[in-house]
């Protein structure tokens, strides 16, 4: 081979390796439904995901440079706020809701406990602007990113443009969040027939399907709808959920059904973090349901559970923990 052809081959390989590295293939886990997110409007690439990951972990998004998305959504707790019932933001201000765990967001149709946000791309605007959270403005965020040495380079690599825009910033953050897929728990291995449940877990799974499965629907463990699961109103917050958005009395006390994947790690529970333990959640469903006009019909008839049965359901819920997700370095902070 002549020198010239070696160079051509090398250049070809270089280009090929670049495009292979940059391509990101979104894999839908087997037997899962089609994602809701429209990937054609925001084509995934390794470089954009990497930029999004950096932004997610960077406090530069907040007014005082101290709060990042990860402050309230940390990986080891399935991307929720560890130990805080209500989220904890800038200058130690306390928010009005518990931060939800983040995973499998590509399947979600709306975001927030009340569905206030209609698209994953627009989600990051809410905490950035909330005076109790990051207290900033997207315009200022973009200006401060532009002034760094690093970010214009990363935007150039990711989007082919070193001028930073709101659009590119939001799309990059979405890309990172879209890759947060949890589909490798013990439950998933059982479904793939690789291992088996214990007798207790199996019993819990059956009870779960009977009493809980219509709202916490497999395989996402949420039907992605708004439901009233019979929690009495917390008098200090007076949060009526979905009705805040639709102003329709039919939506009073309806909240977005949360996933139960990794529930072992995402305590405290519910939109206001009122329960610390799964046993408290079980007691709520068995004996704490508050009747009201909007109570979802599945819960209108009392669920009767013995204490053994409650323990069995909890044993099943623990099979939804996905260590690979919680400790995957791909999702973590890196410098």
């Amino acid at each position: 081979m002549s020198n010239k052809s070696i160079i051509i081959v090398l250049i070809g390989l270089f280009i090929a390796s670049f495009s292979i590295k940059n391509e990101y293939i979104f894999i839908v886990p087997k037997n899962w439904p089609k994602p809701h997110y429209d990937f054609t409007k925001n084509i995934l690439s390794e470089n954009k995901i990497e930029l999004g990951r950096k932004l997610f972990y960077d406090p530069i998004l907040s007014r005082d440079n101290k709060i990042s998305c990860a402050s309230c959504h940390s990986q080891f707790t399935a991307f929720t706020h560890v130990d805080h019932a209500l989220s904890h933001g800038i200058e130690d201000k306390i928010g009005t809701r518990n931060s939800p765990a983040l995973m499998n967001l590509a399947w979600h149709k709306s975001f927030m406990w009340d569905g206030a946000i209609n698209h994953l791309d627009m989600q990051a605007l809410a905490p950035m602007s909330n005076p109790l959270e990051m207290d900033n403005k997207i315009g200022r965020v973009v200006a401060s990113l532009q002034q760094t040495i690093l970010y214009p380079k990363l935007y150039q690599i990711a989007f082919g443009d070193s001028i930073i825009t709101g659009e590119h910033t939001l799309k990059a953050i979405s890309q990172f969040m879209l890759t947060l897929i949890s589909a490798n728990s013990k439950y998933d291995s059982v479904m793939r027939k690789q291992i088996e449940f214990t007798v207790q877990e199996k019993n819990g799974f059956e009870l779960f399907q009977k009493h809980c499965g219509s709202c916490h629907k497999q395989p996402l463990f949420t039907n992605l709808e708004f439901e009233n699961d019979g929690l009495p109103v917390e008098k200090t917050l007076n949060d009526y959920g979905r009705m805040n958005i639709t102003k329709d009395a039919k939506d009073s006390l309806l909240f977005k059904v949360p996933t139960l994947r990794n529930i072992e790690f995402s305590y405290p529970y519910m939109h206001d973090g009122r329960f610390k333990k799964l046993s408290e959640v079980m007691n709520h469903y068995a004996s704490g349901i508050q009747q009201s006009k909007t109570l979802s019909k599945q819960l209108q008839k009392k669920i009767v559970l013995t204490s053994n049965e409650k323990a069995d359901i909890i044993a099943f819920l623990l099979t939804l923990s996905d260590k690979e997700f919680l400790f995957n370095p791909k999702y973590g902070f890196r410098n």
Binding site: K41, N118, L125, T165
Partner: peptide, 24 residues
């Protein structure tokens, strides 16, 4: 357009014409 995610140009959310606490 209101439900189609992040857009650029005059529709870029940095223009201050997008609600943050509720999409639109």
């Amino acid at each position: 357009t209101n439900v189609s995610g992040a857009m650029g140009g005059d529709l870029d959310p940095t223009k201050g014409m997008y609600w943050t606490w509720q999409s639109g």
